[in-house]
Simulated assay, not measured.
Amino acid sequence: MENHQTTNTQMVSMLTDVERASFYRKIYTHLAGAVLLFILVETLFFQIPAVLNLALSLTGGYSWLIMLGGFMLITNYAERLALKSENTNLHYVGLILYVIAEAFIFIPLIFIAIMATKEGSMSILNQAAIMTLSLFTGLSAIVFLTRKDFSFLKSILAVGFAIALGLIVAGVLFGFNLGLWFSAAMVVLASGSILYQTSNLVHKYNSNQHVAASLGLFSSLMLLFWYILSILSRD
């Protein structure tokens, strides 16, 4: 995710300690709000049979590629709104749109996770959530305590995600399962993304980009949650 400096703003690294603390509070407040909105929208989707059935019908073969492609188009548009628009209201539109897209694409995985337990409980979801938040907190602490610039991860992540996308497409086209090791590798990649995004909070963002920063963290958090949940949902 690229950062664009606008007029009448300052880089976070140039702010006073009090201003930086305020900036960070805004980001993590928005991140918490995005997670809460995700939970609410996901719950709502599961209460609407038409939405639930549509999402579940798109999980096989080429339909999954169409769903994944649509997700990428929507989220890329949402990121542009949050980053590049000069209208603050559009920043929030981008964040909300991103959350809704995430909630929709998560429907099949969450359905599988619920069905994976004999009683159809939320136990696997709860375990995945706890593990995700614990790892996210630990990685964030590393950045804030060391203040190390992890911008060097950008090219590594770009290559990693490109390879991952290629493997996902190949798996659909040729009908092979990517397996546990792929999910484990994606957890590592998602962890790197969290380090990179959190580092940007300290070194790269401008003082008016708290919504875009929260969106970047949310995307990395949900990617980590996806693959941890995928691992726990395996038989």
Rank of each mutant, 00 (worst) to 15 (best):
M1Y: 10
E2W: 06
E2F: 05
H4L: 04
Q5S: 07
T6R: 08
N8G: 01
N8S: 02
M11T: 11
S13H: 05
S13D: 06
A21F: 08
F23S: 00
R25K: 15
R25G: 07
R25V: 13
I27T: 09
T29N: 03
L31T: 11
A32T: 10
V35M: 08
F38R: 02
L40G: 00
F46I: 01
F46M: 04
F46Q: 05
Q47A: 11
I48C: 05
P49T: 05
A50W: 06
L54V: 00
L56K: 09
Y62W: 15
L65K: 03
I66D: 06
I66N: 09
L68M: 09
G70C: 06
M72Y: 04
T75F: 02
T75K: 09
R80L: 05
A82W: 11
A82D: 10
L83N: 14
L83Y: 11
K84R: 14
K84Y: 11
E86G: 11
E86C: 01
N87P: 01
N89M: 03
G94Q: 10
L95C: 02
Y98R: 09
I100L: 10
E102L: 13
A103E: 04
A103M: 05
I105T: 05
P108V: 11
P108H: 10
I110T: 12
F111E: 14
I112N: 08
A113T: 06
I114S: 00
I114E: 05
M115C: 08
A116R: 15
T117Y: 04
E119S: 05
E119Y: 08
G120T: 00
S121Y: 07
S121R: 02
M122C: 02
M122F: 14
S123F: 09
S123L: 03
S123R: 01
Q127V: 15
A128L: 13
A129Q: 10
A129M: 13
I130D: 02
M131Y: 15
M131A: 14
T132I: 11
L133V: 13
L133N: 00
L133S: 10
S134C: 04
T137G: 06
G138M: 09
A141F: 14
F144K: 07
L145S: 08
T146Y: 07
F150G: 03
F150L: 08
S151H: 15
S151A: 14
S151N: 15
K154L: 07
S155Q: 09
I156D: 03
A164G: 05
L165K: 02
V169S: 04
A170I: 03
G171N: 02
V172T: 10
V172N: 04
L173D: 04
L173Q: 05
G175A: 01
F176M: 00
F176Q: 00
G179L: 15
G179K: 15
L180Y: 13
W181A: 12
F182Y: 12
A184W: 07
V187G: 12
V187W: 09
V188W: 11
A190P: 11
A190I: 12
A190T: 12
A190C: 13
I194T: 13
K204C: 00
K204S: 10
N208L: 00
Q209N: 13
V211A: 04
A213T: 06
S214V: 11
L215V: 09
L223S: 14
L223T: 14
L223P: 02
L224W: 12
Y227W: 08
I228G: 11
L229H: 07
I231L: 12
I231W: 02
L232K: 07
D235H: 14
